[in-house]
Design a protein around this nucleic acid. Structure first.
Length: 489
RNA sequence: GGCCCCAUGGUCAAGUGGUUAAGACGCUGCCCUCUCAAGGCGGAGUCAGGGGUUCAAUUCCCCUUGGGGCUACCA
């Protein structure tokens, strides 16, 4: 494939939350543009008046920016082929519609919804495929006059040529052939004068000089319709590349019931944009080496349409989590804390506004969670012990640790030494714990475990030498006494 | 129903007629360790089925099966 002056685009419909699948389509286009030094265009397909909203357009743009996918032409940034919002291009479509009608490649259809529905039912009842019967193809002047007099608002249909085979030379799938006889005359302009997707997309891609149309596989079956329009209008046909869909765990198209499906949801859960980009790039594409955690520059360097897989990919949250965890660990303690703070506030652990001292302490506390969580929303669970002095034992097993006959003596000795400690930091607590092990001759486990359980209630968690200095001597001692009493009660 | 796409382990996948069929996630064993996580070293696990073509099929062709998409005055 030639990589000269490539122009790709992402053309979402602003009709709801920005879906993860849309993000991947955008990503593959963006990667191709970056890889080839081409142009990435962002166009908004807002011809669905019912469902489109400016708010969701803003969401999409914000998500794209958050993911780092900048567009160098399109809505907000402008360019030579604007406007980039379809509802602002109505006059352009109208011009080509006139041309199509004048050429005889399109015609007005006066059928009403009811008539169409009746026809469909009849076809269905007869066991035939429900398709438009081209009844308005050759209307007489009288019929047209009568429909107009009735006040009918016509749609415009494309006259599909008979017996023609349409070939989609797909960059991902190879040559796919369709028979035009399987396509009925389809509507290109709705009765309210607004073009349909299949029509507007062609005019825009052609006029915006798009060279490669990379989009989801669900559009493959519509491509022959679009090619027919390109040909009728004498536009050069761009290269197409249909990438497979992202599926949910049960192998059906990913939807709400599969969990989080929008980019925004992942952002809120505390996933990092670089992790999402890395993960999404691995869905349907594979790098040449064995390393899968790749910085975006490396993904761009290696990206190629030839390595895009044809089969659909199941969205695997476990792998996303693994990747995200990796990126999380590379964050500074401060950056990680900022990511987690909203979740701590939501859990009621800290106030929204923190004093510098409190903030510094929280940063240290959260640092302990950094290697334990897959995404920021999991942080409160890991650091809960720092915010709830009055806890219950997590399990009966944990409680049993304190009921061990050696536990009271260990805790007493530990408390005694801790109280006497002048400097409380990781090193001194470490030394203290070791001295207790040595003096009691009980072994590490019999010392660490009771201490751990008595101050956290759990058998698992961050290192004690990290916990104790952050918790402070006073709170630690208080917990030692309280939990021992509770365990023996 | 018609048309179209897809098919390598639980998941993502490399592979392009001859390979011990990579690698990653997950699972699992051991090590490390007070514990969890992380990390290190191992392990189990795959070419959907049936026909061809060929000296030889995971790889090419056909059928079946399974999944998915389109068939809207939605995109």
């Amino acid at each position: 494939m030639t990589y000269e002056n490539i122009r790709v685009r992402f053309a979402p419909s602003p009709t709801g939350p920005f879906h993860i699948g849309g993000a991947r389509s955008a990503l593959f286009n963006w990667l191709l543009a970056k890889k080839t030094g081409g142009t990435f265009v962002l166009r908004i397909e807002d011809t669905d008046r019912e469902r489109s909203s400016r708010e969701s357009e803003e969401n999409i743009k914000a998500a794209l920016r958050w993911l780092g996918m900048d567009w160098n032409e399109g809505v907000d940034v402008g360019g030579d082929y604007g406007p980039y919002r379809q509802m602002e291009r109505l006059d352009t479509y109208a011009r080509y519609t006139e041309q199509l009608i004048a050429q005889g490649d399109a015609y007005y259809c006066y059928c009403t919804d009811e008539e169409l529905e009746t026809e469909r039912q009849a076809l269905l009842a007869a066991g035939k495929m429900p398709r438009y019967g081209n009844r308005c193809r050759n209307l007489t002047e009288e019929e047209i006059a009568r429909f107009k007099a009735e006040g009918r608002r016509p749609t415009v249909r494309f006259r599909v040529p008979a017996g023609k085979s349409v070939v989609v030379d797909d960059q991902v799938r190879g040559r796919v052939t369709f028979d035009s006889d399987g396509i009925g005359d389809f509507v290109i302009v709705k009765s309210d004068g607004i073009p349909t997707y299949n029509y507007a997309v062609v005019i825009d891609d052609a006029l915006m000089k798009i060279t490669h149309v990379i989009r989801a596989e669900e559009h493959l079956s519509n491509t022959p319709r679009q090619i027919l329009i390109y040909e009728a209008l004498g536009f050069p046909v761009p290269a197409f590349g249909h990438i497979s869909l992202i599926l949910g765990k049960d192998r059906s198209k990913m939807s709400k019931r599969h969990g989080a499906t929008s980019v925004e949801q992942y952002r809120q859960l505390g996933y990092l944009p670089e992790a999402l980009v890395n993960f999404l790039s691995l869905l349907g594409w594979s790098p040449s080496g064995e390393e899968e955690i790749l910085p975006v520059e490396e993904i761009i360097r290696q990206f190629s349409l030839e390595h895009v897989a044809k089969n659909p990919a199941v969205f695997d949250v476990d792998k996303l989590n693994w990747i995200n965890q990796h990126y999380l660990r590379k964050l500074s303690d401060e950056a990680f804390a900022d990511l987690c703070l909203p979740h701590l506030v939501a859990a009621g652990f800290v106030a929204a506004e923190l004093t510098p001292e409190d903030k510094a302490w929280v940063v240290q506390v959260l640092a302990l969670a950094k290697e334990q969580v897959s995404y920021a929303a999991q942080a409160p669970d890991v650091v809960r012990l720092f915010f709830t002095d009055d806890f219950d034992f997590e399990t009966e097993e944990a409680k049993a640790v304190l009921q061990d006959e050696t536990a009271p003596a260990v805790l007493e000795l530990f408390a005694e030494k801790l109280q006497a400690l002048e400097v409380v930091d990781g090193a001194s607590v470490q030394a203290l714990l070791k001295s207790v092990v040595k003096e009691t001759k009980l072994g590490g486990k019999k010392v660490y475990m009771p201490v751990r359980v008595s101050i956290t209630g759990c058998q698992h968690g961050p290192e004690l030498t990290h916990i104790i200095p952050l918790l402070g001597v006073e709170r630690t001692l208080k917990r030692l006494r309280a939990s021992l009493a509770k365990a023996q009660a």
